[in-house]
Design a protein around this nucleic acid. Structure first.
Lengths: 231, 231
DNA sequence: TTCAATAGTGTGAAATATACACTTATGAAT
DNA sequence: ATTCATAAGTGTATATTTCACACTATTGAA
């Protein structure tokens, strides 16, 4: 019989593993959900695309590491991120063992530091037209997409992908892009109106139509009074 | 400006971290949802309770590690497990840095190897009356419970906690124990009947009542024809 | 024969989700 | 100035789902 596992717990000579965070950086632009990828500039797998990632340092937590990696690439500091899941097959990276904890980030394209993004050879791709990716990064994206679809239906996370002021047609296009299906305009607005956490401003965005669409703002306080968010 | 992160990717001298899996082993017994915990037999934190865990070996994947840890403790081999989430605050274990990937396991108490469980000083606790736990294990349990509540409403995972043949009153008690709320008997049965993936056997369990309750069996094939599982 | 205890069953009301079409405002073109 | 094209905005009826609710059936034990 093996030793009780608790004793192993105290072993100092236990195997250690390289741990990375890989970030799924989502943006929304011109009605499309996009993902930020980098092209590998070195062998192996040179020129293939991958998620933005980096290693976890010894003194930093996972969330910190994810924020650091994102901020190093985009210059963004206060970004909405959540952990998605951890990929840990022994040979997922065939060159060396790396455990990867994935994080999903929702960023506002207008806030990026373009220069920084360019310097890292990062590119945005529409979610429905991604290039081939290294390792298990495709699985990571699927996993993150499933989660994102669930999250936007049950909570107000989608607003992180829109500017402070946005129109209802914009918001609906965002939901359609993420869910991958068309939504009825009247039903969509009916739900939003019922929850009553958006504030209509006396301002219109005329960039998409001659009539112009009213701009709205997400109101945190009013949202806190909402019991069952559902779209 | 820092170096492009991709170059870091190729570094071999990157920090490595000790990685553990911690298993949330759920069982269902006498109408109660229970969790299997072990009492630490060594300092520090001697005599406090913790989840069952173990370190990830270099040549094994996370899922494998979780199954191995579970099987070493309980002798069970084919157990339903899913990854929950990864806890990675730098100081979550104040004695040494350990990253922990949590797994939720649904086991059938009658299948355990009692001797093995006893030899490890493991104990079952009802989920609503847990002892104090080390480190962030309480957070892990909350996280796993949230997930379990969601999963049993949207999929047939609960059956893993019941024997092959079970009664509807048993099944309902299981749902009530996990969800922490009472369910209307008629509405509960109505949903199950509508989905039509349970097979009623010509056999009754009279251990709970004089009248006896019919035994049912979960039918995998019939379940595959169900589009929207919902309880 | 009665009693106690759990198993089993159906209906109506309320809430939620879905389907669906026309009017409004405005800038651009004539 | 009138017309036209384009997207914004609005309400109602139906179907579906969820929820609330109470009595009968079966049986072993007393």
């Amino acid at each position: 019989m093996q030793k009780p596992f608790q004793i192993n717990r105290a072993y100092k000579e236990v195997q250690q593993i390289t741990v990375a965070v890989d970030c799924l950086i989502f943006g929304f632009n011109e009605g499309k959900l996009e993902l930020l990828l980098v092209r590998r500039g070195f062998e192996p797998e040179r020129d293939r695309f991958s998620l933005i990632g980096g290693f976890v340092h010894n003194e930093e937590g996972l969330d910190e590491a994810a924020h650091r990696v994102l901020s190093e690439l985009t210059g963004l500091e206060d970004v909405y991120m959540e952990q998605v899941r951890t990929f840990g097959k022994a040979n997922r990276d065939p060159y060396e063992r790396v455990l990867s904890v994935t994080y999903s980030a929702l960023v506002l394209k207008e806030n990026y530091n373009d220069e920084l993004v360019n310097s890292y050879k990062a590119e945005w791709f529409p979610i429905d037209n991604l290039p081939e990716l290294i390792f298990d990064h495709k699985d990571m994206i699927e996993s993150a997409m499933r989660r994102l679809r669930r999250r936007i239906k049950t909570g107000p996370v989608g607003f992180n992908l829109l500017p402070e002021k946005f129109t209802l047609p914009q918001l609906q296009k965002l939901y359609e892009a993420i869910l991958g299906e068309e939504i009825d305009k009247r039903n969509f607005r009916k739900k939003l109106h019922a929850m009553d956490f958006l504030i209509r401003l006396e301002e219109k965005d005329k960039s998409e139509s001659k009539k112009g669409a009213f701009l709205y703002r997400f109101d945190e306080d009013k949202y806190n009074g909402v019991k069952n968010f559902s779209i």
